[in-house]
Simulated assay, not measured.
Amino acid sequence: MPIVTVIVPWRESPSRVPAFEALQRWYAENLPEYQLRTIDATDGIFNLAACRNAGLSAIGLDDVVVINDADTVPEAHALREAVAAAATSGLVHLPYTEYRWLGDSGTSQAIAGRDLSECDVEQVVATACSGVYVTTPRTWHAHGGQDERFRGWGFEDAAWYIAHETLLGSAPVRHTGRVYALSHVAEIRAGAHYDANALLMERYRAASGDPTAMDQLVSEWAERKVA
């Protein structure tokens, strides 16, 4: 069986450590054959898109990779299904149809050892497109990956989803299951970087459904490697 690498964008901050440790324990207990490694691709402000892109750079083009945020725990059955399908589909796979944010109460329960499915839930997001991705580098490069001009927090995942739909001709494939987002100190979503991200997001919305316009937008910052 091919080795599956799990890429975790990670820069340590005190409030995030318990969630990341919970994620590490989950993989050790449920999918010990998966190899987890962290990536921090930037010296300045933390850039999720850059970390995700850089994490795939040392992986074989057709190897399956899980890109897993440090605070988000998947379910094993859905993740295994996504890994099996992503090898040949030419699309990115999301191993969930329900995104559960546990909040402080549910996170405390999870860290104390309660089964994730039984933890308190503060918010459920059916349309989420972040947290855990399953792909091959070839598929990721074919639609440009994620735009590294999104700095700080906000919008990089939503813009990526639109680019995927437009350039690959289909939405990412979802597998029935849940992911559980653990709580930590919230990042500030305001200021110059956030405003710039919002403006860039509007450009992605404007290019939605137009492959030529989207290809031009993506090509402003990265070479799109067509499979």
Rank of each mutant, 00 (worst) to 15 (best):
R189I: 11
T212A: 15
S183A: 15
A196W: 03
E187I: 10
D195W: 01
N197P: 00
R189F: 03
L182G: 06
H193W: 14
L217W: 03
D210W: 06
E202H: 14
A198E: 10
M214F: 02
D210C: 13
L199T: 11
T212Y: 05
S208M: 08
A192C: 14
N197S: 03
V185H: 05
R189K: 14
D215T: 07
D215H: 04
V185S: 09
A181C: 10
A181S: 13
R203S: 13
G191A: 04
A181R: 11
G209K: 11
A207N: 05
M214L: 06
N197G: 12
L217M: 04
D210G: 06
A196C: 07
Y204T: 01
M214S: 01
Y204M: 11
Y204A: 02
A186L: 14
S183V: 00
V218E: 01
V185P: 07
Q216H: 08
Y204D: 00
H184Q: 08
V185I: 08
G191K: 13
D210N: 14
I188T: 09
Y194D: 02
P211W: 01
A206Y: 00
P211G: 03
H193L: 12
A192R: 11
E202P: 13
S208I: 10
H184W: 09
A196N: 09
A206I: 11
R205S: 02
V218R: 01
G191D: 05
P211N: 06
L182R: 05
V218D: 02
D215W: 05
S183L: 12
L217D: 02
M214T: 03
A196Q: 15
D210I: 15
A190T: 13
Y204S: 03
A196L: 14
Y204H: 08
L182V: 12
L217I: 04
S183H: 14
N197L: 00
S183D: 14
H193Q: 15
A196I: 01
Q216P: 06
A206F: 09
L199I: 12
A190Y: 03
A206T: 14
S183I: 05
L200G: 02
R205T: 10
P211T: 01
D195K: 15
D195H: 11
A207Y: 00
R189G: 07
I188E: 06
D215A: 07
E187C: 09
E202K: 15
G209N: 06
V185Q: 09
D195E: 13
N197K: 04
E187N: 12
G191Q: 04
A213Y: 03
G191M: 08
S208C: 09
A196Y: 02
A213M: 05
T212G: 09
M201K: 12
M201S: 11
V185L: 09
E187W: 09
A207V: 02
A213I: 10
L199W: 08
S208V: 13
H193N: 15
A206E: 13
A206W: 09
E187D: 09
A213L: 04
G191E: 05
V218A: 07
A192V: 14
E187F: 13
H193A: 10
E187V: 11
L182H: 01
Q216C: 04
Y194M: 02
R203T: 05
R203E: 11
G209Y: 07
A181V: 06
A198Y: 00
A196R: 15
L200Q: 07
I188M: 12
P211R: 11
R203W: 10
D215P: 00
I188K: 15
A206L: 08
A181L: 08
I188W: 01
L217Y: 00
H184R: 06
L182P: 01
A186R: 06
